[in-house]
């Protein structure tokens, strides 16, 4: 196997390590399958690029990039951007759900206290000096 540099070997091994770690996280149920797919695909892609110099060269030429290292950086950055955007979308939805749950909890708690008679049933303000 032909390698361009020692760095490439290190990057390729790191990618394999990352892929294994992602699988381990899924196995321990600390990462849901949904997220693991993106991570596994990207780390496997990084490993393939790292180990296959001809492929890396071909892609580099096809994209008109001058230096192979830039190709790796390009894909790394593209993946990181995609992942961040994906997470932002997820966060937005989580935030929305969180809002709804907080609201529903507050309303249900109000009704529970109302049923127990802990507070005035209606919003009519009592006259000043009136006992509770």
């Amino acid at each position: 196997m032909e390698f361009l540099s020692r760095t490439q070997v290190i990057a390729a091994l790191a990618a394999v390590g990352l892929a294994l770690y992602v699988l381990e996280l899924v196995r321990r149920r600390r990462l849901s399958e949904e997220y693991s797919l993106l991570w596994v695909v990207s780390s496997v892609a990084a490993a393939v690029l790292g180990f296959s110099t001809p492929l890396l060269r071909a892609i580099t030429r096809a994209l008109g990039i001058l230096y192979e290292g830039s190709t790796v950086f390009f894909f790394g950055l593209a993946f990181a951007t995609a992942m961040l955007l994906y997470l932002s979308v997820k966060l937005s939805r989580l935030g929305q759900e969180n809002h709804t749950l907080t609201r529903e909890l507050a309303l249900v708690r109000f009704e529970l206290e109302e049923l127990r008679g802990d507070r005035p049933a209606m919003a009519l303000p009592a006259a000043p000096g009136e006992p509770a």
Partner: peptide
């Protein structure tokens, strides 16, 4: 004596 709904 005003009803209050509390967010957690």
């Amino acid at each position: 004596h005003v009803p209050v709904v509390s967010h957690a």
